[in-house]
Simulated scan of single mutants.
Amino acid sequence: MSLSIAVCDDDETDLRYITGLVGAWAERARIPVSVRTFPSAEAFLFHYEENRDFDILLLDVEMGKLSGMDLARQIRAQDSFVQIVFITGYSDFMAEGYDVSALHYLMKPVKPGKFEEVLSRAADLCRQERPFLLVTSERETIRVFFDDIYYAESQGHYMILYTRETQYRVRLTVPGLLEQLDQGFYRCGRSFVVNLRHVCRITKSEVFLDNHSSLPLGRGQYDEINKTMISYLRSI
């Protein structure tokens, strides 16, 4: 299994050091990895908008205008599976790390032995199965990962699943689909099911997703979807 790892730190010396530790660990563990470095949280987000392909994030906490903790909150709202490890010289933010389900909090200067132990744990977690939906579409049986689904729309006797890569037409009802999904999905009005992992803004009449699409919100659903969203975010 190949791993994609991002290192984000605004200190160039620390960035090189951590990247070197990743390379040394990968060689000893005999795990193929691709490593991408970012000098700021903003630089990472610019890349992440188009390429959400990371398995492990190694984030400095204290960085410029947008901190590593703020970055982690944005990422966690969209991805409940990526492994987050904070690397910092300060212990003040440790309690906040639990809010974003961080795997570990490494203190600078980072000790190679401890770093490799944490990275090995992260790699083990990455090997665990992501939840998925098994669907039959166009005479094919396909595994669709929950986090790849943006939303689903009811059309007659079928549901259209809109995912990162394509669309799938599946013979299912809205209730039938919801039975197979987890608490990260919410029914909008009569015809739509939205993936809360991808919701970035909610108004009285619409739900906006991080792929720049929007869905109509049923009358009286505003308070309910907000409560559901908060409950979901607290559970991940």
Rank of each mutant, 00 (worst) to 15 (best):
I56V: 11
V82F: 06
E138R: 05
L15E: 12
V61R: 03
P131T: 00
K114S: 12
Y105H: 13
H47W: 14
R143C: 12
L217H: 05
N195T: 00
T166Y: 01
H198F: 07
I56W: 00
L172K: 06
A41F: 09
E153L: 09
S34L: 12
L66F: 10
G97L: 02
Y162H: 12
F86Y: 12
Q78Y: 09
F115N: 01
L233A: 11
S235P: 11
D182A: 09
D210N: 14
H198I: 02
Y162E: 06
T166Q: 08
V135C: 01
F145K: 01
L57C: 08
D182L: 09
M159F: 09
V110P: 07
L45C: 10
A29R: 02
L178C: 08
H198M: 06
C8I: 15
T88L: 13
Q74F: 11
N211K: 09
T19L: 10
V174E: 09
L209Q: 04
E27H: 11
S205Y: 13
A102D: 02
M1W: 04
T141R: 15
L177K: 00
C8G: 04
Y98R: 11
G218Q: 03
S154L: 05
A6Y: 04
Q78V: 05
V100G: 01
V174M: 02
Q83W: 00
Q128Y: 04
D14N: 13
W25G: 02
Q83A: 03
T163A: 01
E12D: 15
A43C: 11
R76W: 01
E179D: 15
S137K: 03
R234L: 14
T37D: 12
L66Y: 10
L15Q: 12
D79P: 05
E138D: 11
A24G: 12
P175R: 06
S137R: 02
S34Y: 10
P109T: 07
V170P: 06
S67C: 06
C188G: 08
Q167P: 04
Y158I: 02
F81L: 04
D9W: 04
A77N: 12
I236S: 06
Y168L: 01
R130F: 01
F146D: 01
D53Y: 09
A26K: 04
K227S: 13
L209P: 06
G113F: 01
D147K: 09
E206M: 12
T141E: 15
D53A: 08
K114H: 15
V33K: 07
N195I: 07
E224H: 13
L103P: 00
C188M: 10
V135H: 07
V35A: 04
A95Y: 14
S213C: 13
G97R: 00
G68C: 09
F132T: 04
E49T: 14
S231M: 02
R143M: 12
I225Q: 07
Q180I: 11
A152P: 00
D79N: 06
V82M: 03
A152N: 02
E138S: 00
S91G: 10
Q167S: 07
R234C: 11
G184E: 03
R52W: 11
M69L: 12
I225S: 02
S231F: 03
F54A: 08
D210K: 03
Q83T: 01
R139A: 14
L181S: 10
